[in-house]
Design a binder for these strands. Structure first.
Length: 824
RNA sequence: GCCUUGGUACUCCAACGGUAGAGAGGGUGGUCUCAAACACCACAAAGUGUGGGUUCGAAUCCCACCCAAGGCACCA
């Protein structure tokens, strides 16, 4: 071998990357806009990233997995749309802008450019003609349009509500920014504050969000469906009306245990609710209640959420009447009853509800057992929650829970004092944010006309130019201080008015972005309904389980809204969902404080893009976390070099007919190609890699000690390896394809044809079990009959000796692989 | 506290209720080399968390427990 030839045999990932990346830009193999494309469609979508710095290991995993699926469907002959964009509004940009004295745009777009270029190098198969950024006016204009459609339908409304408030940052926080009761930014305690805010009426859709999950049963992880069901939190029970002394109207309570009504010995109202204030008014409890509520507001989320904290409350000096016992029961107010769930009032059944029991013991209120139990809750301090025979309950005596509930509902119905009821944990979606870097809410507040929608032909309402200190949180939105922006004439009456100064939750931006990818540059509509019919729903969605509830729930909600508005012909946006795991280091999430961050760029430099992608895919099932300490990118590189050399060793002509090739190797190839397709479709990507390794090992063996490098079966194997590998290691596969004598690109190749005749094995190993234990094995034809197999098996010496030791009871034959002889 | 998902070799992971090992990492030995690295070849031992059950046969299905991870958590 010459020195030059020697050099050519070195697998140089940098050279291969540098060689092919520019060519792919030219070929743009993943463009998907051609309307005359006759291939069936597949919409593969990766959750779009937030542009916080460069890509990290987590992105590398997510996009490697998404790419396997996108590239697979391309190889299978589908017209695949695989777009990408940036979820580009949000707080980190604002913080960076304050620090740097800039507009958040600078930091955001710089990061987007950085990430985009990293994604290109990482060989993500995105359609680069469809890029969108949510912070572009061309995008958020349609956010505003969508908001206005909902406003007109009454689905967007304003109300006063208690929201998360960080006293040290002087700003409202989103739920997801409150971590364990603490502010994500400053780690200070979070309190509640009453503010007038915009909400979206997602609670109108609770039952549909629940019911439509039936459509997702096969395509989504059970875990996510379960989390959504829990989040929606449907419960069933009854509403019961209690007469109140000195009040015209009765008070309605919601309970899931109407069967325990006979044990209701007092009533509790939400302390911060209107009812409590009304009832206390004019009594000596009024001041006490007011003080209690003040204290309640000041308490932090951490204090509020502590489950073992003692019960507190105020006696309201008022009495209600238990509708079934006629008893006079005292009315209290407490913070453990929530104003915004159910009716904000509960009947307390201390014997059978732990919270009520804690309260009853604390304030020495009566406890009456109405379900049979050996224990006395008042003595043990433990409420009896189990099903059992009802006692002290009039007509319910002797019944179990189910019958008692049915009966009491009947009784209440006859008397007109109650009926069956449902409740949901899900609340309306608060979308107002007192921040700058988000979509302005397109509403003008006019003294005379009230809330006025900005006319659609005046959209977008653009953000004013603010930067640096102007963005500092002051307790109100920075937009409110932008005088010449916020002061506008009312678009209805022309009088002086003010724009709404809040911006929208960024989850709103991401709740419909998958529709905008259809026509990202269209300035006449948010999305094209005809294209939506053609491309949607998304066939495959890929993203982290961190979005299992909020983002996915919001996207489902908005899809239903758009369906009801007549813009879409489907009700669920994502048919299949894959949740990839996280990349961790030594068992824990990478973080600066742990000092265990692995830099993606370092890994890419050292072992190359393909090695990192292969490592991510091969590490294990995609849903599992990848522990970087357990995997071997250098091992991945070793394999890639090995398979790359294999392509160089093939010495047959590119058009060699595989039909005349070595049959055993061909069988291996066809079996593996077949199995790989099934494995991809069931997300077993790690198995795909293992199968390709197997194929490479088999081809290597054939070259070195079998049929030799000139056999067309070796070429067939190497080409199959290149095509399959192009899903995971596109640079290496592309270079192999060239070395195998083909014109670029391997991405234009199609999935190898499987010859069914080659999937049939010549012989299979049949095992013999005696009483279920392995005792013997021999080769048989795969299409052997059961009778024939049994005959052969019974004649085997192993069976004969066993038979001599006992009586034959049974023979189980599973042709062609197993015979189990049962001997007593 | 409630719910869910997991537990296979030294490590990461495979195995339609039917031979526990596909693949990789690590290890040992060899070939190549002046030597090493790379590459190539070969090799090993040992294991289904624990206890029951169903079955001709269980890593696989069922029950209980242990451990780990995740979700929810005063939602009446």
């Amino acid at each position: 071998m010459t020195a030059q030839a020697d050099e050519r045999e070195v697998y140089d990932h940098n050279a291969i990357q540098a060689k092919w990346l520019p060519l792919w830009d030219e070929l743009a193999p993943f463009r998907s806009g051609d309307p005359s494309d006759p291939r069936p469609k597949k919409y593969v979508l990766d959750m779009f990233p937030y542009p916080s710095g460069d890509l990290h290991m987590g992105h590398a995993e997510a996009y490697a997995l998404g790419d396997v699926l996108a590239r697979y469907w391309v190889l299978r002959g589908y017209n695949v749309m695989h777009p990408i964009g940036w979820d580009a509004f949000g707080l980190p940009a604002e913080n960076a802008a304050i620090k740097r004295g800039e507009n958040p745009r600078e930091w955001t777009y710089a990061n987007i450019e950085q990430q985009k270029s990293s994604m290109r190098r990482y060989a993500c198969s995105f359609d680069w003609d469809r890029v969108l950024n949510t912070c572009d006016p061309e995008y958020y204009r349609w956010n505003q349009w969508l908001f206005l459609q909902m406003f007109k339908k009454g689905l967007a409304y304003r109300k006063d509500g208690a929201v998360n408030w960080c006293p040290s940052c002087q700003t409202v926080l989103a739920n997801e920014q409150v971590v364990g009761g603490e502010c994500e930014r400053c780690d200070g305690p979070v309190t509640k504050r009453k503010l007038n805010q915009w909400y979206l009426r997602i609670t109108d859709y609770t039952q549909r969000l629940l019911d439509d999950m039936d459509q997702l049963e096969d395509g989504w992880p059970n875990k996510v469906l379960l989390m959504q069901r829990n989040w929606i939190g449907k419960s069933t029970g009854a509403q019961v009306r209690f007469e109140v002394e000195g009040r015209e109207e009765p008070i309605t309570v919601y309970t899931t245990r109407p069967d325990t009504l006979f044990g209701a010995t007092f009533m509790i109202l939400a302390a911060d609710g209107e009812l409590a204030a009304e009832l206390a008014a004019g009594t000596s409890a009024a001041d006490e209640l007011a003080a209690y509520v003040e204290q309640m507001k000041a308490s932090t989320d951490i204090e509020r959420q502590a489950t073992d904290r003692p019960k507190t409350g105020v006696f309201l000096q008022r009495y209600a009447t238990n509708p079934v016992t006629g008893e006079r029961i005292p009315m209290w107010a407490s913070d453990y009853v929530l104003a915004d769930y159910g009716t904000g009032a509960v009947m307390a059944v201390p014997a059978h509800d732990q919270r009520d029991l804690d309260f009853a013991i604390k304030f020495d209120l009566p406890v009456r057992l109405v379900v049979e139990s050996d224990e006395d809750p008042k003595a043990t301090g433990v409420a009896v929650a189990d099903d059992g025979l009802h006692i002290n309950s009039g007509p319910l005596d002797g019944m179990n829970q189910e019958d008692a509930i049915a009966t009491i509902l009947e009784v209440l119905g006859q008397r007109g004092t109650g009926e069956y009821a449902e409740n949901f944990r899900l609340r309306d979606w608060l979308i107002s944010r007192q921040r700058y870097w988000g979509t302005p809410i397109p509403i003008i507040h006019c003294e005379a006309c009230g809330e006025v929608a900005v006319p659609e032909d005046q959209l977008p309402v653009r953000l004013p130019e603010l930067s640096g200190d102007q963005l500092r949180p002051q307790g109100v939105s920075p937009l409110a201080a932008a005088e010449d922006w916020v002061n506008v004439p009312c678009s209805q009456c022309g009088a002086a008015a003010k724009r709404d100064a809040d911006t929208m939750d960024t989850f709103f931006d991401s709740s419909w972005y998958f529709l905008r990818f259809l026509n990202p540059h269209d300035d006449t509509q948010a999305f094209d309904p005809e294209l939506a019919k053609q491309w949607l729903p998304v066939d495959q969605y890929v993203g982290g389980v961190t979005h299992a509830i909020l983002h996915l729930l919001y996207a489902r909600f908005i899809t239903k809204v758009l369906h009801d508005l007549g813009h879409l012909n489907f009700t669920e946006p994502f048919t299949r969902l894959l949740n990839q795991g996280m990349v961790v280091m030594n068992g824990s999430a990478m973080s600066k404080s742990r000092g265990n961050i692995v830099r993606l760029s370092d890994e890419l430099d050292e072992n190359g893009v393909d090695s990192v992608r292969l490592t991510m895919v091969f590490a294990g099932p995609p849903e599992d976390d990848v522990d970087w300490a357990d995997v071997s990118p250098s091992g991945a590189r070793k394999f890639l070099a090995r398979v790359w050399r294999l392509a160089g060793d093939v010495s047959s002509a590119p058009d060699a007919d595989a039909a005349g090739g070595d049959v055993p190797l061909r069988k291996v190839t066809h079996k593996i190609v077949h199995e790989c397709a099934q494995a991809v479709e069931s997300y077993r990507f790690n198995v795909v890699v293992a199968r390709v390794m197997e194929l490479v090992n088999a081809a290597r063996k054939a070259i070195d000690s079998g049929c030799g490098p000139a056999d067309p079966a070796v070429r067939e194997a190497a080409e199959a390896a290149a095509i399959i590998l192009s899903m995971v290691a596109p640079y290496t596969a592309e270079d192999m394809w060239e070395r195998l004598g083909h014109a670029p690109s391997v991405m234009r190749a199609s999935w190898p044809q499987v010859d069914p005749a080659l999937l049939v094995a010549d012989a299979v190993t049949c095992v013999i079990q005696i009483n279920g234990k392995l005792r013997d094995n021999f080769e048989v034809s795969p299409d052997i009959s059961e009778a024939e197999l049994q005959e052969i098996a019974m004649a085997r010496p192993a069976v004969q000796t066993a038979l001599a030791g006992g009586e034959l009871k049974r023979v189980i034959v599973r042709a062609p692989k197993l015979v189990n002889v049962v001997i007593a």
